[in-house]
Design a binder for these strands. Structure first.
Lengths: 231, 231
DNA sequence: TGTTTTTTATTTACAGTGTAAATATACATA
DNA sequence: TATGTATATTTACACTGTAAATAAAAAACA
């Protein structure tokens, strides 16, 4: 027997495979993701998965894309939940808190995105760039708002050379220092929240610094104090 | 034939195994570390390694310990290269630059320490704690110096509860706020340099922010400005 | 309806991994 | 010299991703 009769194997088998993969990752980490394990749980054979994903790396890539989307949505939702002028700093803070909240809820997804937990997997940057950019769009958006209000102190911010932005952000006019400043500040803020969050969820913070929430809120405040005038 | 005649298999075979492991890691990343690959390169069989390391994880742990030691030495050397009173800020800066320099020279070692690149490996924290602490001893040392000079602004720094430090740092008297403040500041500084460096060496910084050195030096300066009075 | 084509799964197979168990030999010691 | 221990090998097992051949269900077309 080569193929079992169609026992309503839902048409969205790719989605079912992804769900099983997430279940594995959530349970025991991204490094132990196994095509055979997924097939075992789904009651199919491993090579069947190859009808939907050319290889394991392709599956990992779509998982990363989904994670980025969820991560970005969470921040955008948090930002949009506080609309209106005059609330820019609250939006920034809400976005920052959403960042850590998502990471703590989905530590394995966070490490899937920002770590290298899958042996031999090299992320296809070109394919991932759009979702990467979207995942920080909440941050760049709110920083842009604050900049437009004249509340950003751009003193000393290192700007990248314009050439390196070619073909990367089409909406960016040459020499548009506003956009470059906003992006640079976003990078600096991002690296700070990422540093603290990644150390926290990997358990690398020594026990005496265990109150991650307090450290994180302090960091958010000092970030605002550094970049925003008259905070 | 079960055992070849002793062809001067140096007594430090564990060291030779470690060297081969580092060679693999440096070449193709920690996730592709393979006992069989090591054995192949050394002209022995894989199970022979089990005479020196009980399993793969034990080998990984000693590699991590060595990496931490190298990482800590590099920072301590940088700090000690600028002796004398009045040079405290220079020492802090030198330590910070040494942090990034080591990470850029040994990106795979850095990820071995701070990432989760080896599938299924869970770091034995109790065993690693001493080298972890030593690897940040340069930072805590110089911050302690600056604190002793009364140049630290402790305003708002979140302090951990004293109980959580029990049995962790024996030299710490109960309620010794100085030590707690120094440690907390060191954590905050560490998370910032780690955030930037880890994003840089994993290629996660978008192309427009590619001048890692400039971003890093800006970050070091803003760290000093935040925590040190009259900078 | 019957025939052909395509889709989707299976089986089989191969090379790779860590590691447990049994075995054999070199070396050190009694 | 005989014995015991240390250190290696061989063999084996369960696991991984994935390529190739195969078979049957479903769809398309006559």
């Amino acid at each position: 027997m080569a193929r079992p009769t169609k026992q309503q194997q839902q048409a969205n088998l790719p989605e079912i495979i992804k769900d099983a993969a997430w279940k594995q990752i959530t349970g025991s980490g991204a490094s132990s993701l196994s095509l055979r394990g997924i097939a075992r749980e789904l009651g199919i054979t491993a090579p069947a998965i190859y009808n939907y994903f050319p290889d394991r790396d392709a599956l990992v890539t779509t998982l990363i894309i989904d994670a980025y989307a969820s991560f970005g949505d969470r921040q955008l939702d948090a930002m949009n939940s506080i609309p209106g002028p005059g609330k820019e700093l609250d939006r920034l803070r809400a976005t920052g808190l959403a960042y850590r909240a998502w990471a703590l809820e989905h530590p394995h997804r966070y490490m899937l995105i920002f770590g290298n937990p899958v042996p031999g997997y090299v992320p296809p940057m070109q394919e991932l760039m759009p979702v990467m950019m979207r995942s920080i769009s909440a941050l760049t958006g709110i920083i842009g708002e604050i900049y437009a209000l004249g509340l950003i102190n751009p003193h000393g911010i290192p700007l990248p050379k314009v050439e390196t932005t070619q073909g990367f952000c089409d909406t960016m006019a040459k020499g548009d220092e506003t956009m470059l400043t906003v992006l640079s500040i976003a990078m600096l803020i991002w690296s700070r929240v990422h540093g603290l969050v990644s150390l926290e969820i990997t358990g690398k913070l020594p026990p005496f610094a265990h109150d991650g929430a307090a450290l994180y809120e302090f960091e958010l405040e000092s970030i605002a104090r550094q970049f925003i005038c008259l905070y």
